[in-house]
Design a protein around this nucleic acid. Sequence first.
DNA 1: ACAATCCATTGATCTGTGTCAACCAGAACC
DNA 2: GGTTCTGGTTGACACAGATCAATGGATTGT
Lengths: 237, 237
Amino acid sequence: MERVRQACRSCSVSQLCLPAGLEASELDRLESALEKKMTLHRGESLYTVGDPLESLFAVRSGCMKTSVLGSDGVEQIIGFALPGELLGLDALSVERHQCTAVALDTTAICVLPFARIEDLAAELPSLNRQLLRIMGSEISREQDLLSLLANKRASERLASFLDNLSKRFSDRGYSGRDFRLYMSRQEMANYLGMTIETVSRTLSAWQREGLIHIESKALSILDPEGLRAIAGNCVAG
Amino acid sequence: MERVRQACRSCSVSQLCLPAGLEASELDRLESALEKKMTLHRGESLYTVGDPLESLFAVRSGCMKTSVLGSDGVEQIIGFALPGELLGLDALSVERHQCTAVALDTTAICVLPFARIEDLAAELPSLNRQLLRIMGSEISREQDLLSLLANKRASERLASFLDNLSKRFSDRGYSGRDFRLYMSRQEMANYLGMTIETVSRTLSAWQREGLIHIESKALSILDPEGLRAIAGNCVAG
DNA sequence: ACAATCCATTGATCTGTGTCAACCAGAACC
DNA sequence: GGTTCTGGTTGACACAGATCAATGGATTGT
């Protein structure tokens, strides 16, 4: 771990992250509250269920998954976090993390000590507003996902998911047509409430139909419109 | 609509609501920011998708449902709000409501003008903290619901739902064994991602087995343990 | 280079729950 | 007092997707 100066200003996703909308002087203060950055490797966890809330985290590069554990011990993946996204917000309720965050790839993380963020937010209204904004969008992201799981069929869910990933990659300056799926088929299936076999079969069918090309984790979307049509024009997921 | 003085202090659910943890002087200021209260009748809506964010709302008595509209126009119910619960948090992301809130019964609502709450939160750290806490618990509530929808079978979902309602009623000082289901079978089914027929069949089966007694909307839980066993000891829903 | 894993694909079969349809009961209305 | 409506229950049947099983390909470790 190392102290990072100018962390936010040099970060390509700051406009998607906590600093969005802050002025230069405010950014200075946020950067000085930012403790350190850390790097996780595939499979390493950032926090697990029950850990006390010490910090919020921002993904700087790479990809994380978050999951909750059902009473039966079965993992349910809640989301995949790309650069610019905040992690740990669910811990604000009871001061303990309610889910587990694991790296799916080598991932750089900014650590935001909660006490400092909280103090700073009390002084900087625009920071507090941005924090609320991010929490609000996490709430509505989950609402969209609920709608997806409750009343769409498997292929619609998978198509929405790929479309959503595509959009997020292009928002971050990467190609929305060709990208790497950081997660395994198992993880996609779990996230979308289906089995690995159904994921595999559906992808194979789309490949046969010329909608996509997929080889291991490398995905090319050949017909974005076709995919969106299957998704029912809904980009949740 | 009328101005309400001492709104929070006289409210039986204030400890579940925004004022939780506030000192007397802070409570004064919150109450003076609280604009008015209003009453909705069954079927009336508090806000709908796209309405600009003007206020957050707290349920004082009665029951509300919130739902999002899929791209295909299909309603997906996201939650049922009981007294003490806050509504409108999803609007903080884009300053517009992302879902619709409709009364399921005659319902009293406290209106919290967002601009005033925001200003006040900047001055009262404990209020801001409580707002974040409530948003955090909404996030984890939805996470639990995701887990329920993605990998539980219909009967487990329904049992979890009833168990969760039971718990919330008893938290509010009502009986957790005998209570009125404010929502229709159709609304339960929609919320839990199943059909009305499956809800009906499952309830009938449990009635036959002596787990519950249900007549129209009046539910008695005869065997809470049995119900919880079906739910797999998970209280999400 | 080989075995040992792990992950993905594909096929065959089974099942939970959706779909379609008939029926019933209570509420609302003439 | 009957008619219509709305919401709920029950049954028969169909099907999307789960489950079980076999195989293949890639990655890891020795």
